[in-house]
């Protein structure tokens, strides 16, 4: 097991190198000059620009720049922005915010998605099942922009104005965990729908398995047959989806963060691309890639816990 984890982490290195190189190159070829942008509307003094370009190694060839950057990253140094702020400092706080948001989304997704999926599976072919399936289709079809603004209006504004209930803040993160509920739901929206359908299918399929028939023949109650025998087996694809989704949720937070004005990495990433803050962009993406890799590793390790037929050497 230990050797397996080490092997997987070593395998992650080329993935990390490849993805950072790609992002680095993309930002490199973007039009516009970050030094010129520093001066804002005014035209910058050409001598100062030249000094700054020299100082930030912007005149070096692409691969030299990349090498400087990546060797710093492996030493835990994500570099400085053109405004001379540590990139790791910028990222630290923002990552926490996005992580909060993504975890809220993930928990909501797990509770609602699994709950609805189980409910639909146990009422298969009945009205409840059809209603749940139809609502997941609706959820999949509506873009995040729409659900975001609509829920913000209903839960954040009208709930307070019409009923005096001031529970969901309109935007920002000043209200602690409550601030994350609505954005978390909006962020998780389509994932909830997919997880519902996956859970339903997985359980329906497992309920047809021979070992479920055996459990019934052993005189086990329906509750036990479904809850112990079937669910333990149906859990495997569900856990896979949830684990892989953590990365997707973190990376997909850009729109949700801007709707609800949440100061996370999504917003930061957007601004940094806009300002050509290359070290910030690449730094954020590097961390996101790491999150993906770790989430997938954890999912693979969970496999072995959930299914004893899987063993890692």
């Amino acid at each position: 097991m230990g050797r397996y984890i080490i092997r997987r982490l070593i395998q992650a290195i080329p993935v990390l190198l490849g993805s950072t190189l790609l992002i680095f190159a993309t930002v490199f070829v973007l039009p516009g000059d970050p030094i010129a942008a520093l001066a804002g509307e005014k035209r910058a003094d050409p001598t100062i620009v030249a000094i700054l370009r020299e100082q930030y190694h912007l005149n070096d060839p692409f691969f030299v720049q990349y090498w400087n950057y990546i060797s710093g990253v492996f030493q835990g140094n994500f570099g400085r922005t053109f405004a001379n702020v540590e990139v790791s400092e910028i990222m630290a706080g923002k990552f926490q915010v996005t992580l909060n948001l993504a975890m809220t989304a993930l928990i909501l997704e797990a509770i609602i998605g699994v709950g609805l999926g189980l409910w639909a599976a146990l009422r298969r072919g009945k009205a409840t099942d059809s209603a749940i399936l139809a609502s997941t289709l609706v959820l999949i079809s509506i873009p995040t922009l729409v659900t975001g603004f609509v829920l913000q209006l209903i839960l954040g504004v009208q709930l307070k104005q019409s009923f005096g209930i001031d529970f969901f803040p309109v935007a920002g993160i000043s209200e602690g965990w409550r601030s994350y509920l609505v954005p978390g739901f909006v962020l998780a929206g389509t994932s909830i729908a997919y997880l519902t359908r996956l859970t339903r299918t997985s359980l329906v399929e497992t309920l047809r398995a021979d070992f479920v028939r055996t459990a019934v023949a052993k005189g086990m109650s329906r509750r036990r047959v479904v809850g112990r025998h079937a669910l333990r087996n149906a859990l495997i694809p569900m856990v896979t989806y949830l684990g892989a989704d953590l990365g997707t949720l973190m990376g997909g937070a850009v729109i949700t963060e801007s709707i609800f004005n949440i100061p996370g990495i999504g917003q930061e990433l957007f601004r940094s691309v806009y300002e050509r803050q290359q070290p910030v962009v690449v730094g954020i993406v590097t961390i996101l890639v790491l999150v993906y890799i770790l989430a997938n590793l954890i999912v693979d390790l969970l496999y072995a816990v959930l299914d004893p037929r899987i063993r890692y050497e």
Binding site: D210, F211, T214, A215, A217, G219, H229, N233, L306
Partner: peptide, 24 residues
């Protein structure tokens, strides 16, 4: 019937690999 199943009338199936729960 659940009281009778398993206790007083029991059954074994053809393919024991699929009839046994793989995760327990």
């Amino acid at each position: 019937r659940t009281q009778i199943r398993g206790r007083r009338i029991a059954m074994i199936f053809q393919d024991a690999l699929s009839a046994l729960n793989p995760v327990f």
